[in-house]
């Protein structure tokens, strides 16, 4: 069984997954409180399935980009569980999980996380020669700037508020394909499925060195510098 942990943003989730079966999923909204809420929720989820940590086949964790506190809380919990029992650990870029359910799509997908005050973290994915590929790497941006880059019908997935969905539709008309809130939500079960493929290929990460992914503006500044040009 794979335990998947995604606390990359305030929209957090956990999943317990086994080949061909999703056993449990827990999705909740937190307010910078991941580190307090996470462990009890993991314990509860494992208890409902009577799974002991040492019997997990793998742990998947969302690597960011995302909230500084959230990504660290998830990574710390994942490492803390994996290390003592030598459980294989797989880190998945957060936006890969957002785009995952759309990977059979003919259209490009902008995968989005909220970075606060109108800022977004976003990356673009599409089919390239039959392979699902990240064609624009994750960047710190705004919805307005994303719209400027859209020239053909595009799916927008992930953390998009109602007013942002409205803005996409009014700016882009029929070029904006915005799935309903439930269909566009990021879920830990997607993380588990991406991790399962990697585990099957024995493509696992080094538990001691696995590190978060930080967001960059297209100009190359880290999210940290805060000069995103957002909020204009």
């Amino acid at each position: 069984m794979i335990l998947a942990i995604d606390t990359a943003t305030n929209f957090a989730s956990l999943a317990l997954w086994e080949e061909e079966q999703l056993w449990a999923e827990d999705v909740w909204y937190t307010s910078l409180n991941h580190s307090v809420e996470l462990i009890p929720r993991i314990q509860r989820m494992l208890a409902t399935r009577r799974v002991a940590v040492e019997h997990l086949a793998g742990i998947a964790v969302s690597l960011g980009p995302g909230s500084f506190t959230g990504v660290r809380a998830g990574l710390a919990a994942a490492k803390g569980l994996a290390l003592p029992y030598d459980i294989p650990l797989v880190g998945i870029p957060t936006l890969d999980a957002v785009a995952y359910p759309f990977q059979r799509s003919e259209m490009p997908v902008w995968a989005i996380i909220a970075a606060g005050r109108g800022r977004l973290g976003a990356a673009c994915y599409r089919q390239v020669d039959g392979a699902w590929t990240q064609v624009i790497p994750s960047q710190l941006t705004t919805l307005e700037k994303l719209c400027d880059q859209v020239s053909s019908p595009t799916i927008f997935a992930g953390e998009i508020t109602a007013s942002e969905a409205e803005l996409l539709r009014s700016r882009l008309g029929s070029k904006a394909i915005v799935p309903s809130p439930a269909l566009r939500a990021r879920r830990a079960s997607y993380l588990a499925e991406l991790a399962a493929v990697r585990l099957a290929n024995h493509d696992i990460d080094d538990t001691t060195t696995l590190a978060p992914i930080y967001l960059q503006t297209p100009e190359g500044h880290p999210l940290k510098v805060g000069e995103s040009g957002a909020g204009q």
Binding site: F68, T69, G70, G116, R119, K224, V225, G226
Partner: peptide, 17 residues
């Protein structure tokens, strides 16, 4: 600045409170 960012300052500055 880097020290403050290593405390997660941005999560507060770009949060809801």
């Amino acid at each position: 600045l880097a020290e403050a960012l290593d405390l997660g300052l941005e999560d507060y500055l770009y949060g809801e409170g």
